[in-house]
């Protein structure tokens, strides 16, 4: 009798073991799989927050055609259609040499300048096998004034036409709803208007993006700029508030801001309007992405 008991127990054990093996097939596979590195996607919807560039980069072979536009200040009055008579714009091309490296060239109407930049990623936010709390991107921008100066000496001088902006863009996506960006900035201007103007200006950008819907976000952006007022000119910190909407290949940002300039050296260092006095204007960016991938 004992023998039969042992036998039935053994059969039961075998049966149970077999069952367990089936159930555990998925667990076994999960066990075998190496933990992947999960990169964070879509910290921001487009390569721009509002004025500021974001930590988003185009993928390799991506070509972005971007138009940024700003109207005049609302406070300019009815005779100027509350600012909509005035405008300045930037037409730019951005190209991705690699997933981590973008370059761009543009033309801004303000100061008739050429604007070139290089933007590369140092760190990418990820979880899993490699945990990285933030994405980190370097943006180096050079702005060259092509305008004609009446002063002949000034007009001949080429190097004095350059202004440089260096930014470290540090961003983190918190969950699925909110992303934030810190942008420590250093601006160097080879030549400034008066002796009282600073050649070097430091600033700290603060940006946030809040998801409203899959492809619609509210973006906020503020720059805390080193005080550089001169006896004749008072400068303000640029504050911008707007929305970003994206379709399959287009991105739109529409916002109100007190900054007039579009290129970094200008909107950070040369904002002479006060947001809180209502000296705001409407700005927008439109961008279209093309893929130049030879395999497509």
């Amino acid at each position: 009798m004992a023998a039969r008991k042992i036998l039935s127990l053994a059969i039961l054990l075998l049966f149970a073991w077999g069952m367990q093996a089936q159930d555990d097939l998925e667990a076994m596979l999960l066990d075998e799989m190496e933990e992947p590195v999960e990169y964070t996607f879509g910290t921001f919807l487009s390569t721009n927050l509002l004025n500021n560039q974001s930590t988003e980069l185009l993928n390799k072979y991506g070509l972005n055609f971007r138009i940024s536009h700003k109207f005049g200040s609302f406070t300019s009055g009815a005779s100027k259609s509350f600012g909509f008579d005035d405008s300045n714009s930037l037409i730019a091309f951005d190209y991705a040499i690699a997933d981590w490296w973008n370059i761009g060239l543009g033309r801004a109407t303000l100061n008739e300048s050429l604007n070139g930049y290089t933007k590369f990623r140092l760190l990418r936010q990820s979880t899993g096998a490699k945990t990285m709390p933030v994405s980190c991107v370097v943006l180096l921008n050079a702005n060259y004034k092509t305008q004609t100066f009446d002063d002949e000496e000034r007009d001949k001088n080429r190097t004095d036409r350059f202004e440089y902006t260096s930014q470290l863009l540090i961003a983190r996506k918190f969950g699925n709803l909110i992303s934030a960006q810190l942008s420590p900035t250093y601006i160097h201007r080879n030549l400034v208007s008066t002796k009282n103007d600073l050649n070097d200006i430091y600033a700290l950008g603060l940006g946030a993006s809040i998801k409203v819907e899959k492809r619609l976000r509210v973006n906020l952006e503020y720059f805390l700029v080193q005080k550089h007022d001169t006896p004749n000119m008072k400068y303000y910190d640029p504050l911008s508030l707007g929305v970003c909407y994206q379709t399959s290949r287009h991105a739109f940002e529409v916002f109100v801001t007190n900054a007039n300039g579009i290129t970094e050296n200008h909107y950070i260092a040369n904002t002479t309007h006060n947001f809180w006095a209502g000296e705001v204007r409407v700005g927008f960016n439109i961008s279209t992405v093309f893929s130049l991938n030879p395999k497509k």
């Binding site: 089936q22 992947p36 899959k214």
Partner: peptide
């Protein structure tokens, strides 16, 4: 004959510019 297969979505590579973001996000 039991089989289990697992595909990690974020491991997809999409050659079209910005397509990976749309693929993952939208």
């Amino acid at each position: 004959g039991e089989m289990v297969a697992i595909v990690l979505i974020k491991a997809f590579e999409l050659p079209l510019a910005t397509a990976d973001k749309h693929f993952n996000e939208t």
